[in-house]
Design a protein around this nucleic acid. Structure first.
Length: 195
DNA sequence: CGCAGGATCCGCT
DNA sequence: GCGGATCCTGCGA
């Protein structure tokens, strides 16, 4: 299968809008071992200045958050415990905003996904969580700052999806009032959604 | 330089 | 459901 990256202008929309627009799109990573892809079925928006749960809360600018202050469409990867998570930088230059990709429905390169995740895994366990999907696709912290409108890591046109459901985000219970913000989006009835 | 705290996952109860 | 694994980042001393 061959995929073509969306243009950089796709990422130039408000973070919440982009988080919804990413649903159904394809996330693709190419490596020497092959190409792996999956349809995005779950996202979360993080809007730094006003969002206690975001790493860029109150415009906190560090080496780690730096990429979020730049233009949209670049990868913000970081390590959580033993896992790597991936966000798409969004919003205006100077404002630390991003969309976390939480789950995919496998599209291509499924054999390679099993190889990376371990043989005994079920198909559902390949990509139904933010740390799992990066492992299946071979996304690593070295992808930090990479443009996501160019090979080898990019967003491509996907497929039509059904209804989008909305709810509070996951795993941010120590974030005060931000706990309740309805900034998680997922495709209704898709079994790969993480929760 | 030390330490506390995670946007998680997995296995066991 | 719960706790441990495990490791990087940010901050304070």
């Amino acid at each position: 299968m061959e995929f073509k990256p969306l243009s950089d202008s796709f990422f130039q929309q408000p973070t919440i809008t982009l988080a919804r627009a990413l649903l159904g799109k394809l996330l693709v990573k190419e490596t020497e071992l092959g190409t792996v892809s999956g349809w995005i079925v779950e996202t979360e928006a993080y809007i730094g200045p006003e969002d206690r749960a975001a790493h860029g809360f109150e415009n906190r600018r560090t080496k780690r958050t730096e990429v979020m202050f730049g233009p949209p469409g670049y990868a913000y990867t970081y390590v959580m415990h033993t896992h790597c998570l991936i966000n798409v930088v969004s919003g205006e230059i100077g404002s630390p905003e991003a969309v976390l990709i939480r789950a995919l429905e496998p599209c291509g390169g499924i054999d390679l996904m099993y190889q990376r995740r371990g043989k005994g895994k079920k198909e559902l366990e390949l990509t139904n969580g933010p740390g799992k999907l990066t492992k299946s696709l071979g996304i690593v912290k070295e992808d930090y700052g990479r443009a996501m409108f160019e090979y080898p890591l990019f967003i491509a046109e996907g497929k039509e999806i059904g209804s989008i459901l909305v709810g509070p985000r996951i795993g941010i219970h120590n974030s005060g009032e931000a706990v309740h913000y309805p900034w998680r989006f997922w495709v209704q009835d898709n079994r790969f959604v993480s929760k």
